[in-house]
Simulated assay, not measured.
Amino acid sequence: MDGAIASVIVAATGVVGTLLSPVLAQRSMARVARTTAEAEQLGRREEREENVRISAFQEKRQVYAELNSLARVARNAMKDSVRYYHKKGEVTEGDMSLVTSARLAYQECYDNAQMILPDHILPLASRLNGSLAKGFHLIKSLATQGTPTPEEIRDHCEGPILQMVTEMRTAMRKDLGVSS
């Protein structure tokens, strides 16, 4: 009888195993499919995050380059107006127009950049903005009142403005990982 019971148990186990194997296989395949879908979703999320990071870096690099370039253009326009003053004895309307255009271009860029500049760059850009504004007002005063002296304006362009342009450029390059 022991042999008969054992045969029945073995047969029942075989039948249960045969019946359960498709169910177990299906559950295993569902688990593999779920794991694969989760891995693909994670990969897509990481790719989106990387694209956002790259886009933000490119935008920051573009703003940095534009700020640096327009600050230099404004500084050069001021220096040129002083040089022309020495030649002509006055700041002409054309000279003033060039200085104003350069100043406004920088100001517009600075206004837009304030929203994305990091906290350690924003104060530098703000001080440069103030220094450029002072230079602009000095030239405007020279054009309308004949004061201050052109040398004072030149010294402002070669001193505070140049110092701020250089300091801001160095900080922006470091932020971008271009220099140490």
Rank of each mutant, 00 (worst) to 15 (best):
M29P: 00
D95Q: 06
A56E: 14
E93V: 10
L24E: 02
I54E: 07
N76R: 11
A65M: 11
S97P: 01
V91R: 01
T36P: 01
E66V: 14
I54Y: 02
R44A: 09
R44Q: 07
F57D: 04
S55R: 11
L67F: 12
V23T: 06
R61C: 05
V91C: 06
A37H: 04
L98E: 15
N51W: 03
A37K: 09
V91Q: 06
V73N: 08
T36L: 05
Q62V: 08
A102D: 10
K79L: 15
R53W: 03
E46H: 03
M29H: 03
R72T: 12
N51I: 04
L67T: 12
V82F: 02
A74N: 14
R48K: 07
T36D: 11
V73S: 11
E40H: 12
V23A: 04
K87W: 08
R31E: 15
Y64T: 05
Y85Q: 05
M96W: 09
E49G: 05
E59P: 01
A39W: 08
S55L: 11
V52Y: 02
A74Q: 13
E66C: 09
L20Y: 00
V32G: 01
L70K: 13
V32L: 14
Q26E: 13
K79S: 14
M29C: 03
R53N: 03
L67R: 08
N51Q: 14
K87H: 08
R75G: 06
V82R: 01
E59S: 13
A102G: 15
G94R: 04
R27W: 08
R45D: 07
M78H: 02
S97H: 11
E46M: 11
R48E: 09
V23Y: 07
S81H: 05
E66H: 14
Y64N: 11
L42S: 08
F57P: 00
S55W: 02
R31G: 07
L70S: 10
A33F: 05
R34I: 02
E50W: 05
Y84A: 04
A56I: 06
V23P: 01
S97Y: 03
T36W: 03
E50F: 02
E49P: 01
D80L: 15
S28D: 02
E40T: 08
G94P: 00
E38S: 10
M78R: 04
L24W: 01
L20A: 12
E90Q: 12
E46T: 00
M29E: 07
L98F: 07
R53G: 00
Y84N: 13
Q58Y: 06
G94N: 04
R72C: 08
H86V: 12
A33E: 12
K87M: 10
Q41V: 06
G94F: 07
H86G: 03
R72M: 15
A33L: 10
P22G: 03
T92D: 04
V73A: 13
Q62W: 06
V99T: 08
R48L: 13
V91M: 08
Q41I: 07
G89W: 06
A56G: 00
N76C: 04
A39D: 10
L42D: 10
R53Y: 01
S101K: 15
D80P: 00
A25C: 01
D95N: 06
K79D: 12
V99N: 11
Q26N: 12
